[in-house]
Amino acid sequence: MATSPKIVVDHLSVNYRDVQALRNVNLTVRPGKLVGIFGPNGAGKSTLIKAMLGLMPVVTGRVTYGDNTLAHQLDRVAYVPQRSQIDWTFPATVWDVVMMGRVKKTGWFNRFSASSRQIATAALERVGMLEFRDRPIGALSGGQQQRVFLARALAQEAEIFCFDEPFVGVDQKTETVLFNIFRELAQAGKIVMVINHDLGESITNFDQLILLNKELIAAGPRDWVLTRDNMTRAYGGHVGFFGHVA
């Protein structure tokens, strides 16, 4: 591939039960950068990702990846939902969950191949969870559960990675593992989008920010987005945050 494809969001508006959730969002997400999606609660961060992937209907707008609609190329996408969306009492082991990342590539009616099992093993190793492979997922800590989901995303061998609030309720070790792997994915030329709402020190890990509050406030390089004016428009009032204010 001469140039890696990028995601283009063109005039995207989304309603949630008759209430406008996102208004006229235009932005471009390029590979190779670690992109953080920020905004207050209810700003439409999850909605943006779901609408981009075609997981919820849009009112207007188009989202393309390369030459085609992104929603038609979901086999290139790995999406990790918020941890609170998952029933952690589900009867599955760590291994079962990571192998879910190989379902699409394995194809209908086929059994998992030896190479799929190797990929899953390597993914578990990479997030430091290999020794837990036979544990029921309900017996893990929040951070461990999040790392298992990251391993599943890695096993999908996707080009586009979307993580919804991966840092909620995780330990410091997991946060480090997550950021290291996000960085490696970006450096490997993947598109990496991470929804976050923590404006603390960790924000400096991101190269690019998308700042939302029902509409796009700003998108671009971190220091360019993190202006006092933008933050006031997104969060209202005065917000203490870490970073270089231009």
Binding site: L53, L55, V77, V80, F90, M100, V103, K104, W108, F112
Partner: peptide
């Protein structure tokens, strides 16, 4: 038997399964 792995993914994480192209 034939749909086991797809149904497992779907019943555990419907959104993740949909976003992964199932």
């Amino acid at each position: 038997f034939l749909l086991y792995k797809e149904l497992l993914f779907y019943s555990f994480d419907p959104l993740g399964a949909q976003a992964g192209g199932l």
